[in-house]
Design a binder for these strands. Structure first.
Lengths: 126, 126
DNA sequence: GGTGCCAGTTACTTCAAGGGAACCGGCCTT
DNA sequence: AAGGCCGGTTCCCTTGAAGTAACTGGCACC
């Protein structure tokens, strides 16, 4: 199971002098941001997550959740019911990500248009 | 040249309801954070960037720089000198990234230890 | 004429993540 | 007995970024 192996942190994680070159939990995992957002308001079960995360497959969602659980940003709780129920919730550590994420989200809201314009211009001009 | 095609923004970029699921410029490009940090204090030339970005190859650096130029976060300036000189500098748009990046960096400084602990515990306990 | 510098390029390979489709096990209802 | 629900797993394929290594072009200096 490759996805349950703790992914090695990128070698360049903390280069001693300059602050973080990448964001551990959020980098290189396409759905991580959205998953965290979906859990912001409380625990959700597997199938509840699949709805807002339109397009994600069970496989990828399961993989992402396991890796984020490993990182300690969320917890998986299995209830002994039938049909089975499994809930995912942010940990306190996971909640601390919301602040920085908001900063990034604000940046995107303000600057995404500019970024797309830059790309478009680049495509036309050359 | 695949890397000069404007990469399509991820389809899930702005899902209307919830703020940005990923960071355009910084996601999925391993060296982007560090490159921006290296330009924070002023323009640098190609070979100057290779020093602090220990381990990066000319190819990857060139690719990254071109894609970031396309996104409008930096500019490439070619001087007609010899030997050739080319400088890269952050644009105003690029500078606006520094704030959110600082927030993320602060998060990492504060919580990286906890994250590694969570991983380690996961590895032991299961 | 050979060497070096700078800023790359080109071709090839590797690797991790994502996507698609099929399948599973337990229990419940019809 | 058949089908549905939930929460997955398994296998296989594709993709995109990164890494490796060799090579380029123009000029300048020795």
């Amino acid at each position: 199971m490759t996805q349950t192996d703790p992914a090695p942190l990128p070698a360049d994680l903390l280069p001693a002098d300059c602050p973080v070159p990448s964001v551990p939990v959020l980098g290189s995992r396409k759905w991580a941001w959205r998953i965290i957002r979906c859990l912001e308001d409380g625990p959700r079960r597997f199938s509840e997550l699949r709805v807002p995360l339109a397009g994600i497959t069970a496989k990828v969602l399961a993989e992402s959740l396991r890796s984020m659980e490993q990182d300690g940003v969320l917890v998986r709780t299995e209830f002994d019911e039938n049909p089975p129920r499994v809930e995912y919730a942010l940990t306190p550590l996971g909640r601390t990500l919301l602040g920085p994420m908001d900063a990034m989200c604000a940046w995107s809201r303000e600057n995404l248009a500019g970024l797309l314009a830059a790309r478009a211009e680049h495509e036309r001009g050359h």
